[in-house]
């Protein structure tokens, strides 16, 4: 039943109470669980600002029926790295100038982590295609591509 269910978010079991049936995962994360890092900008899967991992797959949180995500592993921007220590991707976005207003940034961080897990050395075209579901209105994308490439290079160097 939808009135009460448990979601597994960032490694913890989180209880959701008194929710309405149609609430999206994005809404529940933000308004019921207080995880404000995932952003909503279109509510129809056209911007990627709400990107989270659902059983390791990058998805739009706005298009996931929250009550239907019981039993699935959910990772949000708050869970992608410890708060005190930015991940290499997060730091690269900051250093490369890939952050302006920052509204699209959490979704892009999630998408970049997901991309680099699957493809550690993506070509520029691969980066463009894999991140094409994340719209940024400020940067024109150039610095974001640079940030992704910086991480890929650094990770290769670290191996």
């Amino acid at each position: 039943m939808s009135e009460f269910y448990v979601l597994h978010v960032n490694g913890a079991a989180r209880e959701v109470r008194d929710a309405a049936a149609g609430e999206s995962l994005l809404f529940v994360l933000r308004e019921r669980l207080g995880l404000m890092g995932s952003k909503g900008a279109c509510e129809q899967g056209e911007c990627g600002s709400c990107s989270v991992l659902l059983d390791d797959q990058l998805v739009c949180g706005c298009l996931v029926l929250a009550a239907g995500a019981v039993g699935q592993r959910i990772v949000t921007i708050e869970g992608v790295a410890p708060l005190g220590a930015p991940s290499d991707v997060q730091q690269a976005f900051v250093d490369a100038g890939a952050v302006q207003c920052g509204f699209c940034t959490p979704g892009l961080i999630m998408a970049t982590h997901s991309l680099l897990e699957r493809s550690p050395a993506p070509s520029e075209m691969e980066i463009r295609e894999e991140l094409s579901g994340n719209v940024c209105r400020c940067t024109g994308y150039g610095r974001i591509i640079d940030a992704v490439q910086r991480v890929a290079v650094a990770r290769r160097g670290a191996q």
Partner: peptide, 21 residues
């Protein structure tokens, strides 16, 4: 200098508070 923005890390971590947050 090409200084990084002071709100960059919070924005990348999702902890920066937008008005809607």
């Amino acid at each position: 200098d090409s200084v990084a923005r002071p709100d960059g890390v919070p924005k990348a971590q999702g902890s920066f508070q937008f008005a809607g947050d």
